[in-house]
């Protein structure tokens, strides 16, 4: 897109009860992202068009939406990469209840996170209260800690989006969170029982949709969920382990 042009945006408006798609046409200049267009439309013709945003730099994960049906951050979606001869369709995330227009109620995510057992480090390695960890051992955890909590992975996960298993499945974001804790070199907590039961890791059937939409390019399925599934399987479903457990009590953290 080399020059300015007028483009139509078909934006989903309304609250939980009543919604409609409304067309707005605005002038688009090179380099603009979808969030710029939404702001421009607010200033020009729809002052109360609700959208959540913060940093406009892909770092806070606030402006998640579905653009032409694809879950994306509005601030990182360049208009030049879209077909502007057709209306650009902007809708809220579907896996969460709508508050208004593009804003959804994502409070469920905060409730789920709170019930996950927090970081519990081993005693410090040095008298000044610090620890020693080598970079190779924290690389994987650092990948998971890139998560900006945009919840696009939750939005695209069919267990939540289509089957509404919010009460039984914590979703990919929280699998990544648990993976970051479980693989943290200092952590001593055991979350495998919770993963199996409260977090419902068995619901994930590895369709990898979450990995595809992650704006931070975290390899959610391969690096977080599958290793966690393996740990759960080893702990609870391996016949040899179960045999040994008859003779060896479970770890303290499990009780």
């Amino acid at each position: 897109m080399a020059e300015s042009r007028r483009v139509t945006f078909r934006i989903s408006r309304g609250d939980g009860a009543r919604t409609e798609l409304v067309d707005y046409t605005t002038e688009v200049t090179p380099g603009m992202v979808v969030l710029d267009a939404v702001h421009q439309i607010q200033a020009e013709s729809a002052p109360d068009l609700a959208c959540r945003w913060n940093c406009k730099a892909g770092k806070c994960g606030s402006c998640s939406a579905e653009i032409n049906g694809r879950p994306r951050l509005m601030c990182m979606t360049r208009l030049g990469d879209l077909d502007l001869d057709m209306p650009v369709i902007v809708e809220p995330m579907r896996a969460f209840p709508r508050i208004r227009d593009l804003v959804t109620d994502v409070s469920w995510n905060y409730r789920v996170k709170k019930r996950i057992k927090p970081f519990t480090p081993r005693p410090p390695d040095a008298p000044d209260g610090s620890w020693r960890m080598v970079q190779a051992d924290v690389d994987r955890v650092q990948e998971f800690r890139k998560c900006i909590e945009c919840f696009l992975c939750q939005n695209v996960c069919h267990v939540l989006r289509d089957h509404h298993k919010h009460e039984e499945f914590a979703g990919p974001r929280h699998m990544v969170y648990v993976a970051a804790l479980e693989m943290h070199p200092l952590d001593t907590q055991d979350r495998l029982g919770d993963l199996k039961d409260a977090d419902g890791i068995g619901y994930c059937n590895i369709t990898k949709c979450c990995t595809k939409v992650c704006p931070e390019h975290i390899t959610i399925t391969d690096n977080a969920i599958i290793p966690l599934k393996e740990r759960v399987a080893d702990e609870f479903y391996d016949p040899l382990t179960r045999l040994f457990r008859i003779f060896r009590p479970r770890r303290a953290a499990d009780r």
Binding site: P118, F119, P121, P124, D128, G129, S130, W131, R132, M133, V134, Q135, V138, V141, Q142, R145, L181, H184, D187
Partner: peptide, 22 residues
């Protein structure tokens, strides 16, 4: 310095030196 070390105690994962420090 104490505030940095405290963040590490709460789970922050800073980049490491070769000898494993922050």
């Amino acid at each position: 310095p104490d505030r940095v070390r405290e963040l590490e105690a709460w789970g922050a994962v800073f980049d490491r030196t070769r000898d494993g420090r922050i």
